[in-house]
Write a protein that binds this DNA or RNA. Structure first.
Lengths: 348, 348
DNA sequence: CGGCATGCAGCAAGCGCTTTCTACACGCAG
DNA sequence: CTGCGTGTAGAAAGCGCTTGCTGCATGCCG
């Protein structure tokens, strides 16, 4: 049998109540008693029963972090930053919390299911990262779930995701629109007029905002957007590779390829190179996010840096109540254009 | 107040016991009753209280995954594979489990603390990934903790980590030694004689095994290992960059740089390039792991592919009892040499 | 010196669920 | 017609912890 509070109490010759109070440190206990208890805990190698304590106290130290793809550094970096502020072991925060990263794989159902699971565990807090799926029924279901979580006392923060309508959940949204626009403006400034765009999966806010930013830049410059120059795909390298070949098939006159993110851009580079095109002499390429490997591409990738770690850390602090939420509960986090080797003046 | 089992029972006009049985499906319940209960659950939007149920049943559906660095795709890929087999939402397994990814940051203390946290939550299973810290007291503490977890009924599997002495924990270890050896043999076969080695952090099994494999290859070829040609660092790009500059400072005659992993190798490439050296004409570079971006480096990286996803999936299945553990509880997973553009014949 | 605030510890009532054991109603064999 | 197996539902005893309240010494005030 495992050791229980009562065993510790017996050994320390105090009541279970006292042991509990020593362990939680939320009630005055005489120093001598405390020491006796702690010694007993140590000697018996006692480990608190989490479920029991969560049940009795009606609280838990679980914090959930939802990500779309844990294998993607985009989410890994945010999750890492969030976790470090949540105050797991070694974190600066006081009580030890168990930060759990849940991988939704971008699936709306799983997102909802994980939220239910966290609700079931009476999670203390939840951070949702990544773009949302744009689909009315799902959005409504999410909003309802978030409201329920909030009601149950779970703090919720969205990180890198637009505010959820119908909730007053705190949101730290990335300025995908602005970043994409700035990026495309840069390319246009260089002289590009026919730009291909490799978008992410459809029905995602991130995808849409980046695409709209791109188109806004085109429109502002009086460039007619050609639908054939936009291809949708996933947020991975392979998708960028395939989409680029498709783009090349559709229109060989393009001088620049703007990708939904850096991984896609890398795939695009590979496809261009294999097609005998030089970067940026023949075709310029741009990514988004500025993940660590982007600077190592050859030529290094022109992209928009998103302050993933900073935003994650901030979300973590807010959800733990260690930082004031932004006014109105909504903040837009801007990206920064990083002009590097993969973009240049178009061939004439 | 939140809805409880009793509320559902009242609404369905049955006893709480019956509701519990319907929800757990482990006891015969008349169809008409079941339907009535399910309807009530639905109408009340009831969500089971996890802690309470874990306490009463003395089990939990939490599964822990320990990783060194969640921002590193090496771990992200494994975690993703493990999680998909664990049977979280959408997984193929039956009961829904909450897979929690814990980020130790490579710190021994945090590793231990997370294990305690998981023990406290009475986790159903735990998978530890990544190399272990080589340090007698810590190893002993870990072994003790793992034993305790096992005793308490938590299934434990090590993935990409050598067996823990003093436990009979199932382990899927990567053949870092063999992979490194093969890689260096490849370089030697190309004609390289002075190879720099950028090792990972000291006191890690992964670091040591890879380094030993490298040296074994050198020794087998009768090449004297020069201690000045080995530099230790972290497993990241920046570390590779700095270590390479240091290596170049120490010995400008080297014709190849072998890195502890792909990220380090990318940093090495950057440093070489900035130093005016061509890859592979002037200096060959090799990595380890074959992460997705490695093929996109220019030139693409020669490296050793580790079947991260496969190993993770297998570990996940084993820990869930859906696959037999390997004979003896220990399996060695081999890597595969990927010869690509970053390695070539040395300049004469 | 009585009385009362104060500090510390224990009692005991749950927290919401699971599960064993018991109860009841049938239906059918003896 | 009695008795018993079978199928289904309920009563109730916890699971191990937290916490409001009570109780008992102290020490200090008036």
């Amino acid at each position: 049998m495992t050791v229980t509070l009562a065993d510790v109490a017996a050994r320390a010759q105090v009541s279970p109540a006292t042991v509990s109070r020593v362990l939680n440190g939320n009630y005055p206990v005489a120093t001598s008693t405390r020491e006796r208890v702690l010694r007993a805990v140590d000697e018996l190698d006692y480990v608190l029963n989490g479920p029991a304590s969560a049940l009795a106290a009606a609280t838990s130290d679980l914090v959930g972090i939802l990500v779309n793809d844990i294998a993607d550094p985009f989410f890994g970096i945010m999750a890492s930053a969030i976790q470090s502020e949540i105050g797991g072991p070694g974190g600066r925060a006081g009580g030890e919390r168990l930060a759990v990263v849940c991988n939704t794989g971008g699936s709306p159902e799983r997102e909802l299911t994980y939220l239910t699971l966290l609700q079931r565990q009476r999670a203390a807090a939840v951070v949702l990262t990544g773009g949302a799926v744009e689909n009315a029924p799902h959005a409504a279901a999410m909003a309802a779930k978030l409201r329920k979580l909030t009601e149950a006392g779970t703090r919720v923060v969205l990180c890198g995701r637009p505010p959820a309508d119908g909730t007053d959940t705190v949101a730290l949204a990335f300025d995908n629109h602005g970043g994409a626009r700035e990026l495309t403006e840069h390319l246009i400034g260089l002289g590009h007029r026919r730009l291909g765009y490799i978008a992410g999966p459809e029905e995602r806010t991130t995808t849409r905002h980046r695409l709209e930013g791109h188109r806004a830049a085109l429109a502002a410059a009086g460039i007619e957007g050609d639908p054939a120059l936009t291809v949708h795909g996933r947020y991975d390298r392979r998708s960028g590779y395939e989409a680029t070949l498709e783009l090349l098939r559709r229109d060989t006159s393009l001088t620049a390829v703007v990708a939904a993110n850096d991984s896609v851009a890398l795939g695009a580079c590979a496809a261009l190179r294999e097609s005998g095109l030089r970067i940026p002499e023949d075709v310029s390429v741009a990514g988004f996010d500025d993940l660590p490997f982007s600077i190592d591409a050859v030529p290094s990738l022109t992209t928009v840096r998103l302050p993933l770690a900073e935003a994650g850390a901030r979300a973590g602090r807010i959800v733990m109540g260690r930082e004031e939420p932004p006014p109105g509960g909504i903040a837009t986090v801007r990206g920064e254009l990083m002009v590097r080797g993969s973009s240049g003046v178009p061939r004439s």
